[in-house]
Amino acid sequence: MNRPELADFLRRCRTRLAPADVGLAEGVRRRTPGLRREEVAQLAGMSADYYTRLEQSRGPRPSRQMLTALARALRLTADERDHLFHLSGEEPPREAGGSGHVRPGLLLVLDRLHDTPAQVVSDFGDVLAQNAMAAALLGDVSARPPALRNVVRRMFTDPSARALFPEEDHETLARHHVANLRAVLAARPDDPRPAALVAELRAQSPQFARMWDDHEVAVRRSDTKRFRHPVVGELELDCEVLLSPEHDQRLIVYTARPGTAAYERLRLLKVVGLQDLAVG
């Protein structure tokens, strides 16, 4: 681990970002350019003390999970992400079909969506990033272990995930997940991740196994869904799906039509925020 180079790289990446670049308010006048250390720590989900020690060349060796979080918080390109891993004495992710590193362009759009839920999801269901509104509506994925950030896995194995939706919608939603996963597996037969997810769910969920054997295929596209929130009630939201150029990551934006009850409830959800009222 090259602590001095790592510290210098982190400082330079931090100072080139403005608060607006990551969806933060400018606040009071800043004495130095860029984000504050505590803001980077907040975005990465780590303590401010831990991040400060990294910038002062005296921190412990970051875990791979922590490096991934830092790369997202600092809006690093794929090359910069790899450099961050190398400076920390780690090999960058080299997974087939993409590393799960969220593209800066998708994060840039996500950061500017303040009043509507939005999240970046891999094509086989891993939630890679979400804004505060999505965390309030769907649950904060940063509080879950990596395996439980996959929406397909949770749909078939976690009752609390199914409780997000009216019971009469469960069958349709589950079929959509299975049909999309089959399309992904066929498009990337050499990627072990969707294949492993299919094998796991076929063994654990009779419902998934039954639906998988039906061989339905459909790529996930824009849709309308109903959500159940314990505070603001039921919301019927339009789900717009924006694809990355390689189609392996999707920015999903949840909007309500003006004049509807869901529109007013979504405004209330923004006020409620993340005051321990999120589902999941």
Rank of each mutant, 00 (worst) to 15 (best):
G105K: 01
H101D: 03
Q130P: 03
A132Y: 09
E90Q: 15
H86Q: 12
L108M: 06
G105Q: 11
P146N: 04
A134T: 05
A143W: 02
L138S: 15
S122C: 04
P145I: 10
E80R: 03
P92C: 06
A118Q: 04
D126H: 00
V141R: 04
T116R: 14
L108K: 06
V109H: 01
L113K: 09
R81F: 07
L87G: 12
R94K: 11
L84W: 04
A134D: 02
V141H: 07
N150E: 08
V127A: 09
E90F: 13
N131C: 09
A143F: 00
P117W: 08
D111T: 07
E80Y: 07
R144H: 11
Q119K: 14
V141C: 06
G97A: 11
R103V: 04
L148W: 15
V121F: 04
F156I: 10
R149T: 09
N150G: 11
H86F: 07
L113Y: 02
S122G: 15
H86V: 14
V151G: 08
V152P: 05
D79Q: 13
L148P: 04
L113N: 02
P93K: 05
A136C: 13
G125V: 03
V121Y: 04
A143D: 04
T116P: 02
G139E: 11
L108Q: 11
R112P: 02
V121P: 03
P117I: 12
R112N: 14
V120F: 07
V102C: 03
